[in-house]
Nucleic acid binder design. Structure first.
Lengths: 120, 120
DNA sequence: ATCTATGCATAGTATAACTAGGTATGATTT
DNA sequence: AAATCATACCTAGTTATACTATGCATAGAT
């Protein structure tokens, strides 16, 4: 199932940082990985990911280096920095706050029902 | 705690529909209610909410009517329509899919640890 | 009488992901 | 060997959506 792409806004950075927190990866690899991990929910476009990687690097959140076996294709790997790691921690908390708040509003009706049933 | 406003993108409509699914409300009231319900996480600006209400009405998702005690202030109430209700159902499913996918990516590390510990 | 909170509305701005295009390499197919 | 396709990186311009800033009006409080 695809989701409204607008839902993705604001959550791409945390997803990128979270993946690089596990292991260094290169851009194209991240696109394929996150699609697989999310069962096709997240299908990052190159025009989305690469600019994000560049801006994260400019902000000191991640670092890049070219790497590849001799004679084979070189890929640009990114790894998370200390700064990126603490940013990730903040963003995890932020996501928790946000998603809980949405759930609270979406489920208020059910919650009220629960109260009514308890009172019976 | 405030969250990145960009996180909100794509989720405002579902929040609005969800509130109107409980009872008819007027714009200003919704702003105050959702701020209270979400413990200050969602602080809709009027410039955000009113255009959304207008567009939802234009799309047949909600209907409006002026109402107020005689001699007292008139307020523009909105109520959800059948069409709005089925749209809400879809969007609930979409939110579930999206937030689960984010959680899956964010918590993959912990999940892997669990696997490793089981293998020991 | 003035001030503040309430209440509706909209034009213009900022932000972030996408579209659409470009370049290049390695592997597979014909 | 040539053609094709998946891989791999990049960016300028577009689009969608929430926000800023502002205007107008009413009701209650000081």
């Amino acid at each position: 199932m695809k989701v409204n792409k607008e839902l993705l806004k604001g959550s791409t950075v945390i997803l990128v940082l979270s993946m690089l927190d596990r292991e260094p990866m290169y851009g194209y690899q991240m696109i394929k990985e996150i699609e697989k991990e999310s069962s096709g929910v997240f299908m990052f476009k190159e025009g989305t990911l690469y600019p994000i990687l560049h801006s994260l690097e400019a902000g000191g959140m991640i670092e890049s280096y070219w790497w590849g076996n001799e004679g084979s294709r070189q890929r640009k790997y990114y790894k998370i920095t200390e700064k990126g790691n603490s940013c990730l921690k903040e963003k995890r908390q932020e996501w928790e706050t946000f998603s809980s708040a949405v759930d609270k509003v979406l489920n208020k009706e059910a919650f009220v029902w629960g109260q009514l049933m308890t009172q019976e």
